[in-house]
Amino acid sequence: MIRPFSLFSAVLVTCALAGTACQSESNTPDAEITATAVRTSPDSAALDQVKAGSFVIGFRGGFPALAEGRDDAAIAAIFTETCADIRSGTTENEAVSAVSDRLGEGGTQVGPQEAQAVYQMIAVMCQGQ
């Protein structure tokens, strides 16, 4: 069972790590950076990897039972696949269902609240890309 404080802490840590990774060291105002430049920048792939790594840390801390038996690559795949769903315009209900399926691989029991919480972590981290 997920303790609310543990989940909240995991989400905060994950968001803080992702936010730190998103900070730019350039002096260019954000308004001058276009969405096209962000999508085509080679740094966006590196940023996705940083976010996936941050998600792995937050997921392991917030959902130890779901993380059990999964390696980092499997957890990162949950993030990248769900983030791709979000970016493609998948509805929240469909994305949560897909998260539940991904988490349930290997016979893991996943409750609807856990799937929703994992989806929310991913959705926050995918924003702004």
Rank of each mutant, 00 (worst) to 15 (best):
C15E: 07
C22I: 12
G19L: 06
A98F: 02
F59I: 05
G107T: 07
L7K: 02
V11A: 01
V13P: 09
V11S: 04
P29S: 03
G106M: 01
T14E: 06
E68T: 10
R102E: 02
D72K: 09
S88M: 10
S54M: 01
A67M: 07
I78V: 02
A77H: 05
V118C: 05
Y119V: 05
V11I: 12
R70H: 04
G61K: 12
E105S: 14
F59W: 05
L7R: 06
G89L: 08
V110R: 00
A84R: 09
D43M: 15
Q49R: 14
V96N: 06
R102T: 01
S88E: 09
C126A: 15
Q113R: 14
C83P: 06
A52L: 04
E81T: 10
Q49E: 15
A65P: 02
G69D: 04
S54N: 04
V38L: 11
V11G: 08
V13T: 13
S100G: 11
S26F: 10
D71A: 01
T36C: 09
R3F: 14
L47A: 06
A35M: 11
R60G: 04
V56L: 08
A31R: 13
G128R: 05
P64T: 01
E32G: 12
T20I: 14
I78A: 06
I33K: 12
T90Q: 10
E25G: 15
R102G: 00
G111I: 08
P42E: 01
G107F: 02
G19W: 04
S97M: 12
M1H: 15
A10L: 03
A35L: 12
C22Q: 15
R102K: 11
T82N: 00
L47Y: 01
Q109L: 14
Y119H: 08
D71C: 08
P29T: 04
E81W: 00
E32W: 13
R3C: 14
T91A: 10
V124N: 08
